[in-house]
């Protein structure tokens, strides 16, 4: 296996998934709308007090991003599993973990990146500005790929299992806890004037760790699901 053919394989999968997403734009738009709606519900529930909204803002936006990612997880493998494409993908002459990286990358571009791009607007809704707003975007940029990586494990584990939508939430949400803590923590500490660097570097560490481990776990789960 040469390195370039590995990148070709990843590129091929990402291109194909993006093309598919272009054909079904409403799918990708849905998780973004979900994020906006959830984020807008909190001020309605908690009250419009700016001081309160500033305090809960980072946590609310991070939880909303986490749920948006969770809802889109079923798209990573399920369609390919049902129409037999996943079977073909397992049999390509590349390690399965490489394929998983491609699928997760595509998932992040379709449902993670829009969240990152939209976050400054939502941050303004919660009275964040200046440095904390920048830290919010940066934390989501570092954190959402990790969410996609970890989520892929869950998505692969529940392939073809009854009640998979709820089950994947129960499996994946506990695994999301560290990312949530570091992500929301980065914004909070930046607001407190301590600076978000420490939390951001921990988020980076989570991303690296998930990049190393999650593809293998996901690959194992896919093989088990296809047996």
């Amino acid at each position: 296996m040469s390195g370039s053919s590995m990148w070709d394989a990843i590129g091929g999968i990402v291109r194909r998934d993006l093309l598919l997403a272009m054909r079904r734009r409403s799918d990708a738009a849905m998780s973004v709308f979900f994020l906006v709606i959830v984020a807008s519900l909190f001020p309605l529930g908690v009250g419009p007090e700016p001081a309160v909204l500033r305090i809960i803002g980072p946590g609310v936006l991070w939880v909303a991003a986490l749920l948006a990612c969770l809802l889109s997880l079923s798209r990573v493998f399920t369609a390919d599993y049902l129409d037999g494409v996943l079977e073909q993908m397992v049999l390509i002459p590349q390690p399965l973990a490489v394929l998983v990286v491609g699928k997760v990358l595509a998932h992040w571009v379709i449902s993670g990146l829009p969240v990152v791009l939209l976050s400054p607007l939502l941050g303004l809704q919660f009275g964040l500005d200046g440095e904390p707003l920048g830290v919010l975007v940066l934390s989501l940029l570092l954190g959402t790929p990790t969410l996609s990586m970890i989520g892929a494990i869950g998505a692969a584990l529940v392939l073809g299992v009854r009640g998979s939508g709820l089950l994947v939430a129960l499996l994946v949400l506990p695994l999301y806890v560290p990312v949530l803590i570091f992500g929301a923590g980065a914004v909070t500490s930046s607001m407190a004037g301590i600076g978000g660097e420490a939390n951001l570097s921990l988020l980076g560490a989570c991303l690296v760790l998930s990049l190393f481990l999650a593809p293998w776990a996901t690959a194992a789960a896919i093989r088990i699901a296809l047996e």
């Binding site: 598919l20 129409d83 494409v85 079977e87 049999l91 002459p93 590349q94 390690p95």
Partner: peptide, 21 residues
Amino acid sequence: KELYSGQLTYLGHLNGIKDDL
């Protein structure tokens, strides 16, 4: 493993084609 995958073409009872493409 991958060396063997590079030797075969497999067609299961699922067609493995995307409806949207």
